[in-house]
Design a protein around this nucleic acid. Sequence first.
DNA 1: TATCCATGTGAGCATTCTTTCAGATTTGGA
DNA 2: TCCAAATCTGAAAGAATGCTCACATGGATA
Lengths: 123, 123
Amino acid sequence: MDTTRLDGDVCTVHEIDPEAVKYAKEHALPARNIERLSRLFSALSDPTRLRILHALTISKELCVCDLAIVVDLSVSAVSHQLRLLRDRDLVRARRDGRMVHYSLADEHVRHLMDTGVVHANEG
Amino acid sequence: MDTTRLDGDVCTVHEIDPEAVKYAKEHALPARNIERLSRLFSALSDPTRLRILHALTISKELCVCDLAIVVDLSVSAVSHQLRLLRDRDLVRARRDGRMVHYSLADEHVRHLMDTGVVHANEG
DNA sequence: TATCCATGTGAGCATTCTTTCAGATTTGGA
DNA sequence: TCCAAATCTGAAAGAATGCTCACATGGATA
């Protein structure tokens, strides 16, 4: 694994603070963790999905149709987003007849949103 | 503000659970909060930015050039991302001569990342 | 079986994002 | 002043994203 880039847009000679660079490189998160983190935060980065998740934090369970009404979007749009949230393990689906009820997968999601809210409302 | 959509892709008749829908709508987060949350998580949703932020959690301060080496991308790419992180108040810049040292804006960022890591590594 | 209804899915379009490239800006020093 | 170094910036290409539309699927009921 090479550490220096070949093209000309990088520090011309070498690092400014080799110690810090070395330390940061050695303690960097593994690619897989970065990937997981990225996918998690990506799932939380869309207004529609945030509204869906928030609705599920206050109403324990909601079907696709009701969620569509709450967020005021087409059922199809909501279904697409729910699939993404399901794939990322943020929500869980419970089938009941021809309806599917969605709920938060676990308390981590709620905690993440709460933490985010705290940060976002301090600027 | 009307609550029912006019096109044909929504629940044909009316809500399945009107109580839950009403409750979720009344307690929905204001648009401004959703917007802020979305922008915050968006900032955390990109692998490059996550690696930059993580580097800053372990090395208190790093200049653009060193950050570029750590994440193995062009200085320009890193500079673009740093601008975004600065605009979103996730990092802070300190000028020192012709160099600019970046650091985390506050402890919230670290906490958010930690929370994310915990969640992401439990699947 | 036939039909309806809630949900799931694929294609397509418009928009946004991330990076590269080329060049501008700012600072320090000869 | 003049140049080099570190950073910033705008434009543009390629990828990714979110929605709509049309249709498929699966379960309930007649």
